[in-house]
Amino acid sequence: MDTITNCQLDLETTTPVDELRFERLDEKFQSIHIISTVLLYLMFGALALFLLMIDDSLWCIITECVILSALILNLTILRKAYLFRGYALREHDISLRRGVIFPTVTTIPYSRMQQVSIGQNPISKIFNLYSVTVVNGAQTQSSLIIQGLTKETANQIKNLVTEKIRCEHD
């Protein structure tokens, strides 16, 4: 017969996700965010310039102004986004909080994790920051990426998560 579990669920002793203290990312992550955003908008601007300049300079100026306004707006909310973004580790799961317009909290139980990796991209390399990627088997949201970590913190998280995965398995 199929085993039907009926375990006691102890909500009293569990710290709910919305009451968790989310750890902030390194201050230098803000600079990475700013550089990435500016680079992205520069690309948009260059593309618009390339596509519209030949035919219609008026439309080109309007598009560039819209892109510039969007960039300014985006830069103003980056600080808020940075302050909101964070991660929290609990006994059985890891949570990531992000988003300013659509604040989102994503949680993955350790027992569902498939692999953990530490990585660096060219921009984060300049600031000596790392990211930890936790991969699970979900069809969507198959990875949770915690960016803007120092090497020490990234290693700590990775070791903790790998240890937890082992404990959950045992």
């Binding site: 085993t3 579990t5 669920l9 102890d10 996700v17 059985h92 949680t107 569902r112 959950e168």
Partner: peptide, 20 residues
Amino acid sequence: AKLIYELLLLKTESTSANKF
């Protein structure tokens, strides 16, 4: 929603602990 969220995680955990 928050209560369901916590229950889902707790139940997910308890089922894997019991090797359901």
